[in-house]
Amino acid sequence: MASQGTKRSYEQMETDGERQNATEIRASVGKMIGGIGRFYIQMCTELKLSDYEGRLIQNSLTIERMVLSAFDERRNKYLEEHPSAGKDPKKTGGPIYRRVNGKWMRELILYDKEEIRRIWRQANNGDDATAGLTHMMIWHSNLNDATYQRTRALVRTGMDPRMCSLMQGSTLPRRSGAAGAAVKGVGTMVMELVRMIKRGINDRNFWRGENGRKTRIAYERMCNILKGKFQTAAQKAMMDQVRESRNPGNAEFEDLTFLARSALILRGSVAHKSCLPACVYGPAVASGYDFEREGYSLVGIDPFRLLQNSQVYSLIRPNENPAHKSQLVWMACHSAAFEDLRVLSFIKGTKVLPRGKLSTRGVQIASNENMETMESSTLELRSRYWAIRTRSGGNTNQQRASAGQISIQPTFSVQRNLPFDRTTIMAAFNGNTEGRTSDMRTEIIRMMESARPEDVSFQGRGVFELSDEKAASPIVPSFDMSNEGSYFFGDNAEEYDN
């Protein structure tokens, strides 16, 4: 783990906690998980779902989305002020799938948001429990990260689609708070800032007046979040320049895209947490497990152990491969979309394939898809080993990566060399080191050039047997250095459309 220093740990961010010791953190995270579980059980009762239907990941996603929508204050306010045809701002819903006479049927349900809020609060001892809501947002974000390569979004903001390893959390809503900021990748933060800068260039009043003052505060806050992700002084200094700019424009845009590229080699610290679907927490609570009393951590053995003992089902389209669908969801559960496939294969105990080789589309089923041909199958979400999630980018030494994705962002704290394609990355730096950030740029390029592919990161860190909950005997895996390590390699994943 990167030293926490003055930073709060993510469990504290996750639970809005002030400084807590490890036991208190485990208890408050457990409380959050228990609340999600209780809410899910109650919703299944309301909807009269069978046990099997309640364990269907598509039903879980609909129920999670309903509660997130019920608590989305800004959108609710907007919907009330701008009524649109056929949208009731006070209601929320989605597809629920039921097994009827041996076939899967889709039923569109509609609930009062007020009623959903009441059920959620009741499951969370009367609190709004925003930490639990954020947790579900991060699960949705991790699922998107594993399912889609955001080529269009990258290109629109002047970045290269091969930089997708920097895009963790790119679909997280803005209201996801400190826990959300911690899991956002460098590219995601750059993209958010670039969008602001572009608006400022096109709209003279963007930075002016009372609204402009708020915009400015948001801009500086985002700059500080991004600065905190960088691990070298030169990158941090460049972020200070971007933040202090009187009138952010093209120079800042250039600096930010430069920094994003540099992060492929001088990786930023991005938190990883295993956020599971509500249909995993519900049955665990129903079986009598007391998360608050037992304590829970999002970055240790607990999620692995929970998945070892969970039964989750998914709808499967006619030509999809259930094992591939399982891999997709497994990666999402562990926030591992940008991790090295060699490491993932070792931990999972079966070969993890790149996205383009998977015969599976996303987990969600569109409303126009034919239910007649839908089957369902068990998702295999178990693992051979477990490993500690990392909050750091690993040290800054790398190795060759593949054509589709030119770097990785480690999820697990496991000893290995970190793949990246130096030639491709360095070719993108057209040696432009003039301007006010020239000395920093020169320094950053120097550090990137001296990074050695064969150097090892996370020295001495290994994986653990599932029986080793105290992480007492690390097993340090050895990897084939020459092997392909990137998930979005030469990829044809669908595009994420909101």
Rank of each mutant, 00 (worst) to 15 (best):
A146R: 00
P477D: 03
R99V: 05
V190C: 06
N397C: 03
W120C: 12
R384I: 13
Q415K: 12
S377F: 15
T423P: 14
G435S: 10
R117E: 00
A387E: 00
Y313M: 05
L193Q: 15
C223K: 08
I116S: 00
D160C: 02
L79Y: 02
G212D: 03
L226M: 13
Q405G: 00
E192M: 08
P173K: 00
Y52R: 08
G362H: 05
F464I: 12
I63A: 06
L79I: 11
A178G: 14
E114V: 13
M13Q: 13
D480N: 13
G86L: 13
L68S: 06
I119S: 10
C279G: 11
W120R: 10
G17T: 09
V67F: 08
R150I: 09
E339Y: 03
K184G: 06
L166I: 14
P95S: 12
R446Y: 09
A278L: 11
E115P: 02
L358M: 15
G228K: 03
M371G: 04
A403C: 15
C279Q: 03
A428R: 01
D160S: 02
A337T: 10
T62D: 04
A286Q: 07
F489E: 04
M448F: 03
N370E: 03
L341K: 01
K236Q: 07
V186W: 07
L143R: 02
G158T: 02
R293T: 09
I138M: 11
R293Q: 12
E81P: 00
T147V: 15
Y40N: 10
T437D: 11
S450W: 02
I475R: 07
A472I: 05
R26A: 03
Y111Q: 09
L353I: 11
R261T: 05
M191C: 02
A233M: 06
V299M: 05
D112K: 03
R243F: 05
M447L: 09
Y111N: 12
R38E: 09
V476P: 02
Q4K: 08
E375W: 08
Q168L: 02
A387D: 09
K184N: 07
A366N: 06
M105A: 14
S392M: 06
N101Y: 14
E244D: 10
E107V: 12
E64R: 05
C164W: 09
F488Q: 05
Y496L: 11
T257C: 13
G35Y: 08
S359Q: 09
L344I: 12
G177I: 05
L418H: 11
A366E: 04
G187A: 14
A234G: 15
N211W: 03
H82Y: 13
S482M: 07
L344E: 05
F291Y: 13
T6W: 05
L341E: 01
A22D: 08
S359K: 15
R213C: 04
T92Q: 05
D128P: 09
S245V: 00
Q459K: 11
T45L: 10
R208E: 04
G34L: 13
R293E: 14
G490N: 03
D51A: 07
T373V: 15
D302G: 06
K113M: 09
V183L: 15
E115Q: 11
K351D: 06
K236L: 09
E465A: 09
N309K: 15
M239V: 15
A387L: 00
Q168C: 09
R199P: 04
T433G: 12
E18S: 08
M481Y: 03
H324I: 02
S245M: 04
D421L: 04
N211K: 09
M222G: 05
T151L: 05
P283S: 14
Q308V: 14
S9N: 09
Y219L: 14
M239T: 15
L306K: 00
Q399W: 01
S297Y: 10
N498D: 05
Q235N: 03
C275V: 15
R26Y: 04
M239W: 09
T171H: 01
S3G: 12
P161T: 15
H272F: 01
M222E: 13
A233W: 05
R355W: 05
L166T: 12
I445S: 02
K351G: 08
E46T: 04
